[in-house]
Design a protein around this nucleic acid. Structure first.
Lengths: 109, 109
DNA sequence: TCTATAATTCGATATATGTCGAATAATCGC
DNA sequence: GCGATTATTCGACATATATCGAATTATAGA
């Protein structure tokens, strides 16, 4: 009721598109696993210094990883912020919950 | 726990991709509104005789609508079955709930 | 200031996608 | 069987996407 404006097809499509690629899902899952509750982790262990690290173990070129992260960022699903030489990434739970609500509604309507 | 195999990136990407286009979302929302609980509606009013009908009001060519419905179908999100000259479409709630679970988990991990 | 590390941007390229209209197929009523 | 209706398939085409490697930018440390 209050979030009808969020259910416009264009917005939804952008977010779903961000998750529509296997490699992007893998990167996203990495982030999910290393972040917590929508906040950047405080210890280096939990923080996500993304590109080189993730790209290496997933066999994707750094430039491609950067591109994918930008997609996730532009869709609003993850945040990015430079910290020294690295760029920290972390997941924003809000749009994810919104999508989950949308799907649950669709499933039970 | 029991549905770990369903969370593989390839599968997820296919389903998200099916929802990654505005027109496909619109068609999907139509289906959601005219169907109930994962079962085909019994009365003609509730059943979805899709292509011509939906295409007209959304300004999409019938062939394009057919293509989009096929995408949704191949992703497993909607069922299709011929009934006379029409092809009934209805939403399958299971994969939707699965996606919703995935997103909620990601949002609260 | 020079060097090393991390990330992004920039072309390039192959493949995928969305879309249309025309042609084809499936089905119904007569 | 014939004509009407509904849906799908078939080319065609323009645009978008995923990917790479090379060049560039940002930053930290010596």
């Amino acid at each position: 009721m209050s979030n009808n404006r969020n259910n416009n097809p264009e917005q939804l499509a952008v977010m779903f598109k961000a998750l529509s690629n296997p490699n992007r899902i893998r990167l996203f899952l990495r982030l999910v696993r290393c972040c917590r509750g929508g906040r950047r982790a405080r210890t280096p262990q939990q923080a996500c210094a993304c590109v080189g690290e993730l790209g290496e173990s997933l066999n994707i070129a750094p430039s491609t990883v950067s591109h994918h992260m930008k997609e996730l960022h532009h869709a609003g699903l993850v945040h990015m912020q430079r910290r020294g030489q690295n760029v920290d990434c972390w997941v924003d739970p809000k749009p994810l919950k919104q999508l989950a609500r949308f799907l649950n509604k669709a499933a039970t309507s």
